[in-house]
C-alpha cells in the first residue's frame, strides 16, 4: 500500500532511477519521465498526486511543463527542482502554481518532507472539494 503517487520529471536517468528507488523504499508510488512531453502524456493517462519537475530540461522547460500540467490536472501538486539555485526561478515556479521549490543538491529527506507537505495540502483540498460536492448533492432535491 503506497501513501501517494509521484511522477519524477528529470533529464538525468541516474537521478530518476535513484530517486525512484529511494521513494519506493519510503512507500511512495513512483514513476519517472525524461522530458516534459512524455510527462504530460503520462499525466493524461493517469492521475499523480505530486509531480517533481526539474526546471531545466531539453525540449519543454520546467515552467512551460508546469503550466501544461496545471491545465491538465489542476489538483496535482508540483514541486520544482532547480540546479540553478536562483531564487527567481523558484519564485517564478510558485507564481505559476507550483507548491514549492528545492535546490539541488538536496538530501532525500528534504524532498520527502516537501512531498509529504504537498500531499497534505492536496489531501485537504480534495477533502474540501468532496465535502462541497456532498453538500451540493444533499441540497439537490432527488
Amino acid at each position: 500500500m503506497t501513501r501517494y503517487s509521484v511522477l519524477i520529471v528529470d533529464d538525468e536517468v541516474d537521478f530518476r532511477e535513484i530517486t525512484t528507488k529511494q521513494l519506493t523504499r519510503r512507500d511512495v508510488y513512483c514513476e519517472s519521465a525524461s522530458d516534459g512531453d512524455s510527462a504530460l502524456q503520462m499525466i493524461e493517462a493517469r492521475d499523480y498526486d505530486i509531480v517533481v519537475l526539474d526546471m531545466k530540461m531539453p525540449g519543454k522547460d520546467g515552467i512551460e511543463t508546469l503550466r501544461e500540467i496545471k491545465r491538465l490536472a489542476p489538483m496535482t501538486e508540483v514541486i520544482m527542482l532547480t540546479g540553478h539555485a536562483s531564487v527567481e526561478s523558484g519564485i517564478n515556479g510558485i507564481k505559476y502554481g507550483a507548491f514549492d521549490y528545492l535546490m539541488k543538491p538536496m538530501e532525500i529527506e528534504s524532498l520527502v518532507e516537501k512531498l509529504d507537505a504537498a500531499y497534505e495540502r492536496k489531501r485537504i483540498q480534495q477533502e474540501k472539494i468532496d465535502q462541497a460536492q456532498t453538500k451540493r448533492d444533499m441540497a439537490r432535491p432527488s
Binding site: 538525468e12 537521478f15 535513484i18 540553478h84 543538491p105 538530501e107
Partner: peptide, 24 residues
Amino acid sequence: AAGVAHEINNPLQMILSQASWLDE
C-alpha cells in the same frame, strides 16, 4: 559562476543521492 554552479550542482546531486542510497 551561475553556469558553472548549475552544471556542478547536478552531478553533486547525483553523488549525494547515491551516497544517501548507500547509507540507507
